[in-house]
Write a protein that binds this DNA or RNA. Sequence first.
RNA 1: GGGGCAUUAACUCAGUUGGUAGAGUGCUUGCAUGGCAUGCAAGACGUCAGCGGUUCAAAUCCGCUAUGCUCCA
Length: 884
Amino acid sequence: MANFPSLSGRDIREKFLKFYEERQHKILPSASLIPEDPTVMLTIAGMLPFKPIFLGQRQAPQPRATTSQKCIRTNDIENVGRTARHHTFFEMLGNFSFGDYFKEQAIEWAWELSTQVYKLPANRIVPSVFNEDDEAFAIWRDRIGIPEHRIQRMGEKDNFWKSGVTGPCGPCSELYYDFHPELGDENIDLEDDSRFIEFYNLVFMQYNRDADGNLTPLENKNIDTGLGLERMAQILQQVPNNYETDLIFPIIKTAAEIAGIDYSKADEKTKTSLKVIGDHVRSVVHMIADGVTGKNTGRGYILRRLIRRVVRKGRSLGIEANFINQVAETAIALSEAAYPNVREREDFITSQLEREESQFLKTLDRGEKLLADIIADATNLGSKQISGQDAFELYATYGFPLELTQEIAEEHSLTVDIEEFNREMQQHQELGSKDLEAIDLTAKNALGEIVKSSGDTSFLGYSDLISQSQVMGIVIINEENSHNAKSATAREQVQIVLDKTPFYGESGGQIGDKGYLSGDDVLIRIDDVQKEGNVFVHQGKVDRGTINVGDTVNATIDRACRRRVQANHTATHLLQAALKKVVDDSVSQAGSLVNFDRLRFDFNSPRALTPQDVQQVEDLVNTWISEAHQADVNVMPIEKAKTKGATAMFGEKYGDEVRVIDFPGVSMELCGGTHVSNTAEIGAFKIISEIGISSGVRRIEAVAGAAILDYLNIRDKVVKELSDKFKVKPEEISDRVNNLQAELKATQKELEAAKQELALAKSDGLLSQAETVGDYKVLVANMGEMDAKSLQSAAERLQQKLGEAAVVVASIPREGKVSLVAAFSQQVIKEKKLQAGKFIGGIAKICGGGGGGRPNLAQAGARDASKLDEALDTAKQQLVAGLS
RNA sequence: GGGGCAUUAACUCAGUUGGUAGAGUGCUUGCAUGGCAUGCAAGACGUCAGCGGUUCAAAUCCGCUAUGCUCCA
């Protein structure tokens, strides 16, 4: 055992941040697990929030930063619990330099932190460097004083970092902890994870790789590091694996208690299940806290899968009832110090978990029933195996896990054809990944070049509606070939980048401004503005003249449209505030669209809204509008905004300074959009619809401001038309419709009954026409105008009344249509081998139709009524012949 | 984004090569009944998710749409 002080996970985190803060690093809070980068589903590394800075797409707000970043990775999910240190959720401690200090300083500090702060003995640390990185090698040897033979050189796979095929990259140096220094320096093999654990990775970002694979030195070299919190905790707390550190073990303990298990005495399989629970519960708690909800796509699906794995492991430990929330409570308690948002979102987390767990239990129930059928079939057939297809269908269609199928099959002495299952699975996977290629990148590429070279667009639109701007780039949009251009002329579709603009670029749900760009003899109508990073792309059509890169133009936005958007956007904020008041404080935004003519607001809601809720929300918003609250818009540090109580969206942009839209006492939200300066400007607010869009998510559509008149006009027209048609006052329309519906239904019923009665009466009149043939009665008749259904009841009744009989009746329900029904009694079928189905088909053929049915009752249809008499004659002859 | 499955009475669900729409629970009514899922009998309730197609005939087959479930990416 090594001799150093044990540190709690919390201490390790705090000491790391403090160490780098003392060295002029700014401590930044952990970014959301939902990354800004749309190409990545979850925050998978500590550096991910800084990626745009490293890639040169964004300016660094400060030269040095340090973070404790929550991360989720699920690619190695099968290893979780089985190895000592695989996780889906983990925390990465990192120090970052953006063109500031570099290799030497990074290595020195990493060493100092490890040996002075965490007090790891020097002889237990083994550094690795990239094969070709002599510089790093020299620093370890000369500055730190590590003997040469202890510095390990490693290949590109482990010790060279890149973010993609091209772009910034560089060598790494990693610090390993040696659990068994007594084994000596001769046989150091860092790949041997029973002896070594990598705990600190230093990335020296010093090159840029171009498309041809050439490396050129970067002007601004960066440092990106990561120290795994759970790994350091394992080392310092001297436990056999990451799960038994104080970061996770309390969760395991809770789960073990629920299951009535003593962890220390449990077998390996049980321990593994508990470890999986401990790991996954941390993941799901943080994911939900950051706004991920269970869905069948994307990150929502990842969340769902994790929750299901927890429930399954719980069941395998013998836990019957819903338990996930008890375990989650421990996880929440563990994280609240470092991540206060988790405790704040507790109710939401609990309700989501509850829902997901119950849903999964339902899914399992259904699967068990289906599987029971499959097993019964297999047993009946004397089969010893369940087919891979069946197992796969259970899995892919009904969400029933394969291992459960296997377990249950085993209880019935059956096996599952795994090879077939895997083949099915492979096919399924190929289907899923096939269609990913076909995205047209041409327009984006043309635009991409401009975006890269033009620099950020400065946005003036909060205060100015017009500006003199310089054209930085033009893309001509063309179906086959969109390209970069020096100029564009009349009728061409264009995308234009300006140095500064009053146009709002679509973001935060608010759509882009409309307007125009004008200059000497040139006019371009702009109908949408999109943002590429911080570059605003104005999309539109050249109306007349020619525009050139470098020209100065007047950029003017459409004020009327802007006013409408502003009214709708501020109304959206008021709506959210009202929902929190009326429905539940846990209501949170799940998506939003602010358009010129309407607004749409999706939100997580603990329950569906009643009509009264909706009315109350609408009234409250209108009250606030009429109270004329003045807007107070300020830019402030995010921490300050949070302490003031501003409502933030999940995954709010990673940045120090945020814009806060405050209507004091009513609503305070972080928002980059444009707003009215006083709520009175909105005028009025009207909710149009409230619907559920998926479980736990509701959508409200509403209109505000001038757009309300458009809505009212359309609605008014409908009401007027209706009231004209019904000849009643608008408020009486509803009653009138109700009455009409009831009347219609009653009339239809009466009609139906009358028809039946008529048919039966008619049929009774026919009874006397029945002829006796041998032991049987034969009746063939044309019943005239009668619908098919009545005809059928008539035929049944006739046959019943006649006893052993063969009845064929026909009708002409309407012009050009003939119906035929045959009803034969049992003896006719058994003794005389006549079947109604076959018989009626032959008869119908005479009239140019066809039909069939069961032996005792059959119906047919045909078109040629002129042949009906002939057909009935034939029927009679055949019946007489057949029965005598 | 791509597959699979489902949608039938107020609820839970049956409906086997296309041919009379059903069960249980609940509801209403009557009779019996001193409880534990009261008992017996009668009755009402259906746009078979919506739209289109094939067919003499569609809950059933085909296509589209909507909603939900589920797997893959």
